[in-house]
Design a protein around this nucleic acid. Structure first.
Lengths: 199, 199
DNA sequence: GGATGCAGAGAACGACCGTTCTCTGCGCTC
DNA sequence: GAGCGCAGAGAACGGTCGTTCTCTGCATCC
């Protein structure tokens, strides 16, 4: 029940419910029941449901950044770091609870109605694009490679979500390999010119 | 007001409203007001709101297929036909009303609650993948190229929607060119080995 | 130990949802 | 021209939403 940090407990519970079924499909009363936090305290912790949604998205953003960064940092060469992103996606897609990118879902559901949700999604995606751009730069790749790799990652997320199968991650990775190799064909000391797949 | 085909008129109005603001944000009363069709007749035409949503998605699917097919058929070589998909995306993203893929949005909003909506999205995406696979096969490309090109198209749609800018289409096109060239490097009689961008 | 205040449980509130029903009036049929 | 029936306008229905309020009990402090 995590009574030490009720705010965090509420956000985690809300995330689970919102992500699984959509924000509008989950009422405050269900959140109360699932979290064990009375309505009065919910509204003492958060002034409105929208604020809970934003807190959920903020947590999701932090977890995503942490997860990607960790995966990338485990990879060796700058080129392998570029592709590690897709391995992270593969793990994610394989989770039972996977139902697409929470930001894309929230944007589709609420983006037109809630400017703050729309902005949260925008900021999340922008942040990822900048991160990938940094990876590309560190690998000595051309500027246009970053957005292209991001498109593959985005497409994999929606494809895996709607199809309900995880193979989009591997497809995206292979496509990314091609793009990377085409953009940085040189005999870098980086790579053995073979597949960069780990283990 | 298109009194000749009230069913179609309702679906078009509903599509405009649902797409712009989300399904759940538009009540039946607003649809009545916007379409000029009284509630009683709405429910004579469609047994429920969900049925209207499905009709909207069916129309959207037909329009999408028609639009893509037309664009592709205008392209000359099999290789150019592969890339024409992204030109269609570019036109779409530039529309004022563009707010992402209606199926992705509907899936995020209702997919977890309405199996029929989820299945409609699945069928739509599957259909597109099969279409692209056919284009790849006609161009003599390898089997794995189709899904990769689709990932770029999907990613471009969500990226353009959330960012609110259309440049993802051009980025996807350039990435697709690279993938196509890498997968079909031969001296096909098809291409002058330069950019395939039209006019 | 009695007064004070805060927190939990849940009822209540107004608004709005999707859907159905009632009532009115107009246009046909014979 | 009288009777019939269908269609439009909108009220009504039961339910649920996000949010607030009331009431009860318990712990705390002088």
């Amino acid at each position: 029940m995590d009574p030490t940090d009720p705010r965090r407990h509420v956000v985690e519970t809300a995330d689970r419910l919102f992500y699984a079924r959509g924000v509008q499909a989950v009422g405050m009363d269900e959140l109360r029941q699932a979290s064990g936090v009375p309505l009065k305290r919910l509204y003492a912790l958060f002034p409105s449901k929208e604020e809970i949604v934003l807190a959920v998205l903020a947590r999701r953003h932090a977890l995503w950044e942490e997860g990607v960064r960790e995966r990338v940092d485990r990879a060796g060469t700058p080129r392998a770091r570029l592709l590690a992103v897709y391995d992270h996606l593969a793990d994610w897609f394989a989770e039972d609870s996977f139902r697409g990118c929470g930001f894309i879902n929230a944007f589709g559901e609420l983006g037109a109605v809630s400017p703050r949700v729309a902005e949260a999604a925008r900021a999340h995606k922008r942040s990822f694009q900048e991160y990938v751009a940094g990876l590309v730069e560190a690998a000595g790749g051309p500027r246009e490679l970053g957005p292209q790799l991001c498109l593959l990652a985005e497409g994999a997320q929606t494809t895996a979500a709607i199809a309900g199968t995880p193979e989009a991650a591997a497809q995206a990775r292979r496509a990314a390999e091609v793009l990377v190799r085409a953009a940085m064909p040189s005999g870098d000391p980086d790579e053995p010119a073979q597949s960069t797949r780990e283990a």
